[in-house]
Design a protein around this nucleic acid. Structure first.
Length: 335
DNA sequence: AACTCGGGGCT
DNA sequence: AGCCCAGAGTT
């Protein structure tokens, strides 16, 4: 993508983090909004985690956002609020691995570090007809060594890295690569041997879990809701949710009442189940069945130890699943 | 080395 | 339904 015009290491950093496992079309608006809200390292360094996650809401892989904040604080404290110019120091920042460190080093500072992403792995494994498991660290090391040697003769590492990734994205694509019109095909070992369709080879297949999440959206007559922050090392860590019970058991008003009581939540008035939504949320590694029970009562007196009582949901980041629910029920949503 | 982390687009 | 995406951190 046209990050070539961007020379500000901060902006390159943000864009590269957003583009991890994320397509340009999906991440572009997030990038614009992130830079608008947090224009510089020192502003980001003093942001609240909820603010950063709110901008990230819906993009996924939320650890990226939490690590951006952590890294900004480190840069502010240890690097005088100036983005480090040394590869090892860049790599040491949380959320920055080998790919992103090489990308920033080459794009912002012209340093000779080759990027190794999905595109590059595909291009080089085909070019050299490497049919070993592309995800194994051994194969990655072989390709990394190949690129490091190549990089010694490169005049402009930024152009080289951009070019090879673009070549992977535009020409040497995962499916239906344009071998017939490819300038490189006469040197491509996979093309010569008729192995283009089988390379890159991947060994492992993800096994999907199925989880049923029962959320209780308890609302009182003043518009108060009960939410809590997900703190456990699980999907959506750092985001907010309604009272949750993960279980396959069938929920009725009886189970809802029991769940509310067992969480030490105290309410006044009769609990009424006014609506029941179900969303099937397909992710790469799991299928989540989200059942959301909208329950009304006269008054929420005590939120209990884990929950927050609030009459304003705006400002709290929610998983896509719950955001969908809130959009579908905007009549009782202040967002 | 194997697992886990989201969401969306394409076939 | 399966695969992939300008990957990184944890176990």
């Amino acid at each position: 993508m046209p990050w070539l015009e961007i020379k500000d290491p901060y902006k390159i950093w943000i864009s590269e983090i957003i583009l991890q496992q994320t397509r340009v079309a999906q991440g572009w608006d997030y990038y614009l909004r992130f830079i608008e809200k947090f224009p510089s390292i020192d502003i980001l360094a003093f942001a609240k985690e909820d603010e950063v996650l709110k901008v990230w809401e819906g993009l996924g892989y939320y650890t990226r956002a939490r690590n951006l904040l952590k890294a900004a604080k480190i840069i502010f404290k240890d690097h005088n609020a100036i983005f480090p110019k040394d590869y090892e120091k860049i790599l040491a920042l949380p959320g920055i691995g080998p790919y992103t460190a090489a990308a920033i080093s080459s794009f912002a500072y012209g340093l000779p570090y080759p990027v190794l992403d999905g595109n590059v792995l595909r291009v080089i494994s085909r070019y050299t007809a490497n049919d070993q498991d592309i995800l194994s660290s051994k194969t990655k090391k072989i390709i990394e060594n190949y690129l490091n040697e190549l990089m010694q003769e490169v005049k402009d590492p930024a152009i080289f890295n951009q070019a090879i990734m673009n070549f992977g994205a535009m020409q040497c694509t995962p499916r239906n690569p344009g071998c017939e019109s490819c300038q490189m095909s006469k040197h491509c070992m996979a093309f010569k041997e008729g192995l283009v369709e089988q390379i890159p080879f991947k060994l492992k297949k993800v096994k999907k879990k199925v989880r049923t999440l029962n959320f209780i959206d308890l609302i009182d007559n003043r518009g108060n809701r009960l939410i809590n922050k997900r703190t456990e090392k699980d999907i959506w860590m750092g985001l907010y949710q309604f009272l949750l019970l993960e279980s396959n058991i069938k929920f009725s008003i009886l189970e809802i009442e029991e769940t509310i009581i067992s969480n030490e939540i105290k309410t006044k008035g009769k609990l009424t189940l006014v609506k029941q939504n179900e969303y099937r949320h397909e992710l790469t590694h799991q299928t989540i069945k989200g059942k959301i029970f909208t329950v009304r009562c006269k008054e929420i007196i005590n939120a209990g130890p884990k929950m927050i009582k609030t009459n304003s949901l705006s400002g709290y980041p929610f998983p896509k699943l719950l955001d969908l629910y809130l959009q579908d029920n905007h009549d009782n949503y202040d967002k």
